[in-house]
């Protein structure tokens, strides 16, 4: 039970991100909240594969490898992909935010909700 709070941290990050996405009004702050949500999911996935006594799953010159158990490699491989996907999504959404600001000169979603179908 010693490092259960790693799970707690990831849940808090996920919930903070989700709540901020639903309640915040600024376009860029919603993107920051999305990144926090992704960081929470990544932390949750990595703590799944953690072994307290283990080493990184890399065979190096270290001799005393016999009795040592290694940390699981698959979560790390997947989180590598998820981090780059998170960066790609952030870059795209920031471009959308910048273009929306250039068109409508506001970054607040309340002002954007007004007229939808204009010509």
């Amino acid at each position: 039970m010693s490092n259960f709070f790693l799970y707690l941290t990831s849940i808090l990050l996920i919930m903070a991100g989700l709540a901020a996405i639903l309640y915040k009004r600024n376009l860029i702050k919603i993107v920051i909240a999305l990144n926090i949500l992704e960081a929470g999911v990544n932390l949750l996935f990595i703590t799944l594969g953690y072994r307290p006594g283990g080493t990184a799953p890399i065979f190096t010159m270290a001799p005393e490898l016999e009795g040592l158990s290694m940390v699981l490699p698959t979560p790390q491989a997947l989180i590598l992909t998820n981090i780059v996907i998170g960066f790609a999504t952030t870059a795209l959404m920031l471009t959308f935010a910048v273009l929306t600001h250039r068109h409508n000169d506001t970054m607040d979603i309340r002002n954007l909700r007004g007229v939808e179908s204009n010509d």
Binding site: L27, I30, L92, T95, F96, T100, L112, N118
Partner: peptide, 13 residues
């Protein structure tokens, strides 16, 4: 169109 970036933003979110 004024709202197409914002539509893309919402869909991506």
């Amino acid at each position: 169109r004024k709202f197409s970036p914002y539509a893309g933003y919402k869909y991506m979110m």
